[in-house]
Amino acid sequence: MRTLGSQKELSDFLSSVERRAFKQALYAVRNEETALDIVQNAMMRLAEKYGDRPLKEWPMLFQRILQNAIRDNYRRAKVQSLWTTLLSSFALNSDEDSDFLETISSKQESEGLATPHRRLEQKQTLAIIEKEIQKLPARQREAFLLRYWEEMDIAETAAVMGCSEGSVKTHCSRATHTLATAMTELGIKL
């Protein structure tokens, strides 16, 4: 049956992208629950709004929905952070600017210290790379992951990110350079 085939196609497609999508969201928001929510929303939106579209359109549509969901999350978190800062300034005498990413970054780092050392070199390398990817500026990380992990070409990446192809090239180049430098400094050879 064509209908069942289409449902199977969507199921196969989502199975093939869901883990990478989760990781992408996790690198961006650095919170497992939030990352899962983002992926869930992206899957739901793709199925509800574009479930009847041809299979070949799904990868770009899904990435676009996912990246928008990640950006929306950033905006919400920033607004929330702003209100928290404003309200807490009445109670606490804080003279530092609060940044959402810095806050969760330090939290992540303190959590990271509590985790046991990974014994396998591969796992260590993976952890370091993932951490370096998380440190990248949002647009650089987005461009890098779309280009090299999702294997999109420059035009597709530009369409998903809503920017020019030149910007994609710049973001990708900077991200690659940053990662390569970090790997060299840490003595990691890929």
Partner: peptide, 20 residues
């Protein structure tokens, strides 16, 4: 646990798939 959650999310999405 994450894999299980992703499975459930996928199933929920498929139940709401838009059909022509």
């Amino acid at each position: 646990n994450v894999s299980r959650r992703l499975d459930l999310n996928r199933q929920a999405a498929l139940e709401n798939q838009r059909m022509s």
